[in-house]
């Protein structure tokens, strides 16, 4: 004789109804959220990885924001330097004109005055601010970096020789400024010194060829120094595309970690629904099944 089975079939049926309803519920949650991980317990390792993924992604977003701040600053710095280059070129042609022996002393004086104007213009450019901060004062961004001594006419640097380093992507930093003295009062070719000397030379009519050479040197030196900004701009542009790509990768990774494959989930859902219906139909049959008593009547 076989082992007596539990005559009550309902507990089994109810358990499987519960199971298929649970499956339906899971599939519905996954379909509506688009995620397979809806609670840490759904996949603890993925939930932990998502923490780092989200953090990484928000860091990237912040780096991109930093980059846009820097981009603005670098563009202003670069165009300011371009303006100074233009000024120097003007000074160069004025100097060459003044150095010509045929120019009268009066005309030379007039040229000298023009050069003085250029000097003042350059000091103004060297004091350029971006969003309220001086661009060329080293890490002193709240005080005017270049001032003209009222008595001697000499240009003083009030900034400092320090640079700042800013991270533009994980572990990748760039130098974010060139101190003003390095740009405009460089020992190997001082922009402000050359203009001052040119003014003096034109004024006194002496040392004019040397003063012109000095302006040429200053121009060369400025070109060398501005490379820092050009490089920085290149670097942040590269960084920008890297970060955009990284954000894409991270969102793909996030999708791999927690994203639901909708076709799979949809098929899970129909399977669960089918199982549920089958169990319900079986249950209804069991519940209404005739017993021996029905036949005895």
């Amino acid at each position: 004789m076989s082992v007596r089975i539990n005559p009550d079939l309902l507990p089994d049926l109810l358990a499987s109804i519960q199971q298929s309803e649970q499956n339906e519920n899971t599939a519905t949650t996954q379909l509506s959220s688009g995620r397979t991980v809806n609670s840490p317990s759904d996949n603890p390792a993925a939930a932990a990885a998502i923490v780092l993924n989200h953090d990484q992604s928000s860091q990237d977003a912040q780096f991109l924001q930093n980059i846009s701040t820097l981009q603005g600053r670098f563009q202003v710095a670069d165009s300011t330097i371009s303006n100074v280059v233009e000024v120097l070129n003007q000074a160069l042609s004025l100097g060459t004109e003044g150095a010509n022996g045929t120019v009268s002393a009066t005309d030379r004086q007039a040229i000298a005055t023009e050069v003085q104007g250029l000097l003042t213009q350059t000091v103004g450019l060297a004091n350029t601010t971006y969003q309220g901060a001086y661009l060329f004062g080293g890490t002193n961004v709240t005080q005017q970096p270049f001032t003209v001594d009222a008595t001697t006419g000499a240009v003083n640097y009030n900034g400092n020789p320090n640079t700042t380093s800013v991270e533009i992507s994980q572990g990748n930093s760039i130098t974010a400024n060139v101190p003003g003295d390095q740009l405009f009062q460089n020992a190997n070719g001082s922009v402000l010194g050359a203009l001052q000397d040119l003014y003096n030379a034109l004024n006194t009519g002496t040392n004019m060829p040397a003063a012109v050479t000095e302006v040429q040197n200053a121009l060369t030196q400025l070109d060398t120094q501005r490379v820092t900004y050009d490089n920085a701009l290149n670097q942040i542009n590269l960084s920008e595309s890297f970060l955009n790509q990284d954000q894409l990768n991270l969102s793909q990774q996030e999708n791999t970690l927690e994203g639901a494959d909708l076709s799979v989930v949809a098929s899970n859902f129909s399977q669960a629904q089918l199982a549920d219906q089958a169990t319900l139909s079986a249950t209804s049959q069991v519940l209404t099944q005739k017993t021996l008593l029905d036949y005895l009547a």
Partner: peptide
């Protein structure tokens, strides 16, 4: 003036 380092970010880093 020369130590006025309001733009120094080294400690922020």
């Amino acid at each position: 003036a020369n130590i006025n380092a309001t733009g120094d970010n080294s400690n922020a880093n």
